[in-house]
Design a protein around this nucleic acid. Structure first.
Lengths: 337, 337
DNA sequence: CTGTTAGCGCATTCAT
DNA sequence: ATGAATGCGCTAACAG
């Protein structure tokens, strides 16, 4: 059981003054005699007083906390975004409550309620792969709580978003494969509901078109991003006749898994099949062969998204601008292509 | 700016009843007519009412939130622990506030204050490598807030802890190297302040002794876990004469970095130098050669630590038991040894 | 500069 | 079964 919490009243009693003066001293209000302030601060320290943010939030209707909802936590991408977000939040004097939805729509909805009841001042969101109903996000808007989407954005909602140039990144990846002499380039994509998948696929398709390579639907697979299912689709690709000579994967975890499987099948990378990923996750330089990939500025995504959120915090709802910030990508050529 | 928050008073007015009845209906109190309850629930839903947890916490002196403070976020270990912790917390109806100290003592102290002011009911802690003053942790105890240490534990404090059998794990790693015929086994360890480092080093020393291999202090290095400094110490090892023929690294990131550097130096792994890591991080199976390592049940650490925390929550302070749970490790032999 | 009063949203007595 | 009144810890408006 928790012990009695030290309150400003305890300090006031100990010093035989009113709690208002204590409150003023503690919040740095100017109207307190220097000497009094000093005694209060000392006593607070001695009694290990810690302000109860709940009462403050209750009064101010602001919690000085931001929330971030990410779909998963198991790969390095989202933790790194969070690092960036936390840096910026901390600089601005905000705490960050983190929650992960485990790629489950239901958990995501539950997480939004947690954010709401914890009175977050704003929320950063990257959706689960399942999410196709956005009512729980719209609740934030109706309550006047600003939100910013990043990476897994919601096209339907008019709010600030931070993405990378997925289309351009995909173009550079596919163009690179074509210049390596590859002609049957497969694309292992994610759920079509996610706009990152749509954009990367569009880049893939248009680059093929640009170079006069016919699009072959057999070479395009959408899967649910469950890494253990990559096996099914790589097998499928390997059994095609003729076989693809390159694979553009939706992200690095997928590409890395593909590399393992193709090596197991006894094929040579990149000679038989070249692989390109997307993201430049930490592991991509470690696999053998090292992975060619489209680098995105991961922590920067978190920083920029947080900044956009902070920007909205001071403004009237009517003044919110729904700008979409698009960060640049950069192709890193390694040994898998 | 945030809009007016929907409160139980709004619901009460809309239904022309008292806020007490609304409160009762919403908390599931039996003394409410079924029909009335239904109307209230419907109205709450229609008005998108969301309970303000701050007032509840203010009254109950409990927030139904647990905190977790980790030293860093950039490698896969701590995010995976968090996944485990969050699972268990969620099952028990608790939310989890996550904060990372960025290996900085000061940030760690700041984070404990955040936890305090957010009225967490309990805290999971893994210290930074710098921490050697524990006053900020003791504050939790003085306030009657239970804590549990995991991984980077504090020997000085008598509270529940969750660790893996670092000593035994190190023994199995070094024994394995000896059985591979290695005779000059170096140990690249972390700060001596961390008990995981002490334990793993003890396992290293005693296994050498057990097999009659003389301990050579030149082969033991303590470094600060900054991954970019691994280079300095690997260079040092490589320039020793005679050179070590194996390295037991304190963790997988260190071992993986070592592999890269030794390959760059043109040496063969494991023929010239064998490498063993500790943890079985995700990346360890991906490096070339794949890393032999001591596997630890990462998510399980989070789950068990959370359970120990929950166990304390219902008990009187006097009943808290300071048990240390030690989880088993498992040597995974791959190609680096 | 300091003390008094009111109220943030809710759960919980105590009445009825 | 319901309503009125009290208070959780704090800030802010109002007096002095």
């Amino acid at each position: 059981m928790k012990k009695h919490q030290v309150t400003i009243i305890d300090i006031a009693k100990a010093l035989n003054i009113s709690k208002s003066t204590v409150s003023r001293a503690l919040t740095g209000h100017p109207n307190v005699q220097p000497h009094t302030r000093e005694r209060i601060l000392e006593m607070a320290d001695a009694m290990e007083y810690e302000k109860n943010m709940f009462s403050v939030s209750l009064i101010k209707r602001a919690s000085k906390t931001l929330g971030i909802i990410v779909p998963e936590f198991s790969r390095s991408f989202f933790p790194q975004v969070i690092i960036g977000a936390q840096q910026r939040a901390k600089e601005a004097g905000y705490n960050l409550i983190i929650s992960q939805s485990d790629e489950s729509y239901e958990t995501e909805v539950a997480n939004t309620k947690v954010m709401l009841s914890h009175q977050v001042d704003g929320v950063l969101i990257s959706m689960t792969k399942e999410t196709n109903n956005y009512e729980h996000f719209k609740t934030f808007q109706r309550k006047g709580i600003p939100i910013v989407f990043f990476n897994r954005i919601c096209d339907e909602m008019i709010v600030p978003k931070v993405i990378v140039d997925d289309y351009e990144g995909a173009c550079s990846a596919v163009e690179h494969l074509i210049k390596q002499g590859k002609k049957r380039i497969a694309h292992l994509s994610g759920p079509e509901t996610l706009s990152i998948c749509k954009q990367r696929k569009a880049g893939y398709l248009n680059t093929l078109k640009k170079y006069g390579i016919p699009v072959n639907d057999d070479l395009i697979i959408h899967y649910d991003l469950s890494i253990n299912k990559v096996k099914i689709y790589i097998n499928y690709f390997l059994n095609l006749n003729p076989r693809p000579d390159a694979i553009f994967a939706i992200n690095d975890p997928t590409a890395i898994e593909a590399i393992q499987l193709i090596k197991e099948a006894g094929l040579k990378i990149p000679q038989d099949i070249a692989i390109v990923g997307f993201s430049n996750d930490f592991a991509s330089s470690l696999v053998e062969p090292s992975l060619t990939t489209v680098e995105q500025p991961i922590a920067e995504i978190g920083r920029v998204a947080t900044q956009l959120l902070l920007d909205q915090l001071d403004r009237e709802v009517a003044d919110w601008k729904a700008q979409t910030v698009m960060l640049k990508t950069n192709l890193i050529v390694r040994n898998s292509s």
